[in-house]
Amino acid sequence: MAIEGDTKDWTWVLQRRCEQCGVDSAREDPASVPALLRDAVGRWQEVLRRPDVRDRPDDATWSPLEYAAHVRDVFGVFAGRLRLMVDEDGPTFADWDQDAAAVAGQYASQDPAAVSAELTTAGLALADAFAAVPAGQWERRGLRSNGSEFTVRTLSQYLVHDVLHHLHDVRG
């Protein structure tokens, strides 16, 4: 069964703690992100080794494998956005429809070992990219196509919430 798309605006996580997962991403800054991402990558590797990795808890919720494939792709999208913010003044990010990506990428049928390797590579590369951003560039800005403004700082906070929230979703 197809999963209903997520149309919520999650930017509120930049202002307050997420009651669902407990993450208070507003407390983080780009300097803390590399360690958080490296830890999360290890936790995702464990999730992807579970025997139930393909099992959906219900018809409306992704399996751990599908969440992991999503996080892998999030790493790639955020790496591109971070690169734009550092290299350009005030870029506008290309649209990314996470639900369309899940369908097109056939997340449910992917190989868990391949997803683990790809997630690891992408997550560690993104950790390194955040580690390379000097503190003087944390307030560089970029825009989503819907007008939501991010800085390198808030992009890192939004990313932290997404990755950790999905670990919470899969009890990772």
Rank of each mutant, 00 (worst) to 15 (best):
P57I: 13
S32L: 13
A113D: 15
D9P: 08
H166S: 03
D39Y: 02
P112A: 10
W138T: 01
I3T: 04
L155V: 07
P134V: 02
A100F: 03
G172V: 06
R83V: 06
A114K: 14
S156G: 11
E118F: 08
P34H: 12
T121P: 07
S25T: 13
E149M: 12
L159F: 02
W12K: 04
L36K: 05
A125P: 02
E66I: 11
R50P: 00
E19G: 14
G105H: 04
S148H: 12
H165E: 02
L82E: 02
S145R: 13
E19S: 15
H70F: 09
V170C: 09
A101P: 04
E28F: 14
R17L: 15
L65T: 01
C18K: 04
A40K: 00
D59F: 05
G80E: 12
T120L: 10
R16G: 04
C21F: 01
G80V: 11
V163S: 01
V160M: 01
Q15K: 05
R141N: 11
Q20L: 06
G76H: 11
L14W: 08
V86F: 04
R72Q: 13
G5L: 12
Q20D: 08
V53I: 04
A69F: 09
T61Y: 08
A69H: 10
F75D: 15
A129V: 06
L119V: 09
L37H: 01
A132I: 11
L48R: 03
A69E: 12
A26E: 10
L36Y: 02
T7E: 08
G105S: 11
G22M: 08
R50L: 02
H165S: 00
W138V: 01
R16C: 02
D95S: 13
P64K: 03
V47Y: 01
G105R: 00
K8I: 11
R171G: 15
T7C: 04
T7R: 12
R141C: 12
D39E: 14
L164V: 03
R83E: 14
G42F: 03
G105Q: 05
G76Q: 14
P51D: 15
T7H: 12
V103P: 05
P57V: 14
V13L: 05
K8M: 12
D9L: 10
V74L: 12
V115K: 05
D29P: 03
W96D: 10
A122E: 07
L65P: 02
A68S: 06
R16F: 00
T11V: 12
F93G: 05
F130Q: 03
F75Y: 13
A35N: 06
H165Q: 01
V103N: 07
Q20C: 02
H161V: 07
G136I: 08
W12S: 08
H165C: 01
D73F: 09
Q106L: 09
G136D: 13
L159P: 00
V115N: 06
V47I: 07
L155C: 04
A100E: 14
